[in-house]
């Protein structure tokens, strides 16, 4: 599904990614771990197509298409979803309106008919309920005044509604208490399917005890320095990143 070859990227002229190679197949969950400043978030922004993140070398193919050629919204249309580490507030725009606009934009891109308002709201309410979200949140402005946990749940709601094929989860566990972490993990697990791939970016092992990955990679200074199975996450938790990084 996703093939990253020798990816180099710069931000403000500084090279952050220095040759990433990674292949993710449909149905797989990959975790990327690493210390601060290793390039984890940069990787997710480059894949999603954020302005200011410049690819200087390498290629990314998504379902056979050149991902890097596409503008951000087309990548979303193709099925790339980024759950933000810091979800953005959009004052005055109700959550429902935002989601409807997004879902219909993506459906349109895929050549599917737009959902009518009633159908949409019904679907949305059901998804919100599954996530244990208070329906009041649907009326409130996007992320405005939400707590950290509420914002992350809202990301999960958007993910569930947009039904992407590739989920990039950027430190979705950060700032969550244990109950919220469990709820968010359940939401992620509910989305796992043979047609869908996930790239879980995290600092800590704790999310990975709930969302068990198929593969774990350690990112350091813009390169993947170690890869392994779920047991690697456990090892990192016990020994820290030092050893892996030095070994590289």
């Amino acid at each position: 599904m996703l093939e990253i070859n020798n990816l180099h990227a710069t931000v403000d002229g500084a090279e952050i990614l220095k040759g990433i190679d990674l292949t993710i197949r449909a149905g797989e969950v990959h975790a990327i771990m690493g210390p601060n400043g290793s390039g984890k978030s940069t990787l997710s922004y480059v894949l999603a197509g954020r302005d200011g993140y410049e690819v200087t070398e390498g290629s990314v193919t998504f379902n056979g298409k050149d991902l890097l050629e596409m503008p951000t919204e087309e990548r979303a249309g193709e099925g790339v979803f980024l759950a933000f580490q810091y979800p953005v507030e959009i004052p005055g725009v109700p959550n429902t309106t935002f989601l409807k606009e997004a879902v219909n934009a993506v459906r349109k891109y895929r050549g599917e008919p737009e959902l009518d308002a009633m159908e949409f709201v019904k679907h949305l309410r059901a998804k919100a309920k599954e996530l244990g979200m208070n329906p009041e949140f649907l009326k409130r402005a996007v992320n405005a005044g939400f707590s950290g946990g509420e914002k992350k749940r809202n990301e999960m709601l958007q993910m569930a509604m947009l039904e992407p094929s590739l989920c990039l989860l950027d430190e979705t566990d950060s700032g969550l208490d244990i109950d919220a972490l469990k709820a968010v993990s359940e939401a992620i697990n509910a989305m796992r399917s043979p047609e869908r791939a996930m790239l879980v970016i995290t600092h800590y092992q704790r999310l990975l005890t709930y969302v068990v990955p198929d593969h774990v990679h350690v990112l350091s200074k813009g390169r993947i320095v170690r890869s392994g199975g779920p047991e690697l996450a456990q090892e990192l938790e016990e020994k820290g990143y030092g050893e892996s990084i030095e070994a590289a």
């Binding site: 951000t72 990548r75 979303a76 249309g77 959009i90 004052p91 005055g92 935002f98 879902v103």
Partner: peptide, 23 residues
């Protein structure tokens, strides 16, 4: 970026944010 990442085109995103601002 948040809007375009969700599939909304840039000009529609501006309209959305501005409509929110004017709500």
């Amino acid at each position: 970026f948040y809007c375009t990442q969700r599939g909304i085109g840039e000009e529609e995103a501006v309209a959305l944010v501005v409509n929110g601002f004017c709500r």
